[in-house]
């Protein structure tokens, strides 16, 4: 499942937002949401497969973090964002200079 599709579910998005805020265990996430722990685990599984979060064992439980690979994707997004913005800039400045 793509990252976008993985976040399309509102509960899964809420799970992701909690993990993005700070690293948390399944139990901690469950306490913050009106869903069962097994539902949270299912959502985390999907988020992990979409490379949005990753888990690290701590004692008997896993702690979930935002996957740093997400930074790479965010960077790619900004790269596109600025690329298209500069194209618009180029059109505008060249038109203004031609019409001077």
């Amino acid at each position: 499942m793509s990252q976008i599709a993985a976040l399309a579910d509102p509960t899964r998005l809420a799970v992701f937002e909690l993990v993005a805020e700070q690293p948390r265990s399944v139990a901690e996430i469950t306490r913050s949401l009106p869903v069962t722990q097994s539902a949270v685990s299912q959502h985390l599984k999907v988020l992990r497969e979409a490379q949005l979060v990753r888990s690290e064992p701590r004692g008997a439980s896993n702690i979930y973090h935002v996957d740093p690979a997400g930074l790479v994707r965010m960077r790619a997004w900004l790269d596109r964002f600025w690329g298209s913005a500069l194209q618009e800039f180029q059109k505008q400045v060249e038109q203004e200079w031609r019409d001077k």
């Binding site: 976008i4 976040l7 992701f16 949005l52 965010m74």
Partner: peptide, 12 residues
């Protein structure tokens, strides 16, 4: 810190 959600939403 916020999260990745806003950017991903916007990207979507």
């Amino acid at each position: 810190e916020g999260g990745w959600v806003g950017l991903l939403r916007n990207y979507a």
